[in-house]
Amino acid sequence: MDRARIVVVDDDPRVRSLLRRSLEAEEFDVDEAADEPALLGLIAKHAYDLIILDLTLPGTDGLEIARKIRRTSDVPIIMVTGKGDVIDRIVGLEVGADDYLVKPFHMRELLARVRSVLRRTSRHEGGDAAPCAPAGAPGFLIGTLKLVVADHLLLGPDGAPIPLTQGEFAILVALAEANGRVLTRDALITARGDDVDAFDRAIDSTVARLRKKLPPDTIATVRQLGYKIGVPTEAATFTRPASGPRDIAL
């Protein structure tokens, strides 16, 4: 049985050991890294399903590491920090973190967030492997784009994959399903899967990042209301093999 593989990045060996033992008890495969060089060495050997990333690290900090990861990969990131300032949380979400925890936290809360993020990736849940997409994979034609929902795949006009974070993908799916109807920020918060403490700016930041990856006018802003798809959209079924494992390069 395929088990989700997680890497814990924290400069405190006691924290890493605690998180590793707790996650392994829940049947996850867990590796540890104290800093960016150690993480790079692990990434070169393994494909990870989730990164638990401390904000304050020696050398390159967690925010910069997250920025580098997001340039090439949509691997889920849960950012962990001892700082409670909301600005740190906003910046973490803006650079592409999928969730955020402030130390100290209960292990039960971390485990719940790990499961929630992995469930939203449609790859693992509590160690069970997600099924491959069927030969006829449902999705949407969004203007010149092909959105294959089950494969977590967006193809550009030239047929090349467009990498999206989990939050970006969830918002695009919700807008495609609405097919021209306006979705409020509250509706998109629900679609993105934020469990607690979500706020409008996180949605605006995610939409802004998403727009940079899409053709112009794909997402329209409806002032004081929210967002909608701005190009012709229709449901479609695609014949395509399931996507392979994630590749991460910093």
Score class of each variant (00 low, 15 high):
Phe169Cys: 04
Thr233Cys: 11
Leu118Glu: 03
Arg246Met: 02
Leu111Met: 11
Thr165Arg: 06
Val231Arg: 10
Ala34Thr: 04
Gly59Cys: 09
Ala176Pro: 15
Ile65Asp: 06
Ala178Ile: 09
Arg240Met: 14
Ile69Glu: 07
Leu155Lys: 12
Ser22Asn: 08
Glu36Ala: 12
Val80Asn: 11
Arg120Val: 08
Glu26Gly: 09
Pro134Asn: 00
Leu40Gln: 07
Asp195Ala: 14
Leu141Val: 04
Gly136Ser: 11
Arg201Glu: 05
Gly126Asn: 07
Phe199Thr: 15
Ile87Val: 06
Arg192Val: 12
Ala112Arg: 00
Lys45Val: 06
Arg209Gly: 15
Leu42Asn: 04
Leu63Met: 12
Pro76Ala: 09
Gly136Tyr: 02
Leu118Met: 05
Ala170Ile: 00
Ser22Ala: 11
Leu118His: 04
Ala242Tyr: 00
Leu53Ser: 03
Ile142Arg: 13
Asp61Gly: 10
Gln166Met: 14
Leu145Ser: 05
Pro232Trp: 05
Val222Lys: 06
Ala47Met: 09
Gly82Phe: 08
Val86Ala: 15
Lys212Gln: 15
Val231Tyr: 00
Ala191Tyr: 07
Pro134Val: 01
Leu93Trp: 04
Leu214Tyr: 07
Ile6Asp: 00
Ala178Lys: 00
Leu101Ile: 09
Leu55Ser: 04
Glu125Phe: 07
Pro58Gly: 03
Ala235Asp: 11
Pro232Ala: 05
Pro232Asp: 06
Ala176Gln: 13
Leu39Pro: 04
Ala44Pro: 10
Ala191Asp: 06
Thr233Asn: 13
Asp98Pro: 04
Leu19Tyr: 02
Pro232His: 08
Ala208Ile: 12
Arg70Leu: 13
Arg240Gln: 14
Arg211Tyr: 11
Ala235His: 13
Thr72Cys: 12
Lys146Thr: 03
Leu50Cys: 03
Leu19Val: 10
Arg201Met: 08
Arg89Tyr: 09
Ala4Gly: 11
Asp195Thr: 15
Val102Met: 02
Thr233Gly: 15
Thr237Trp: 07
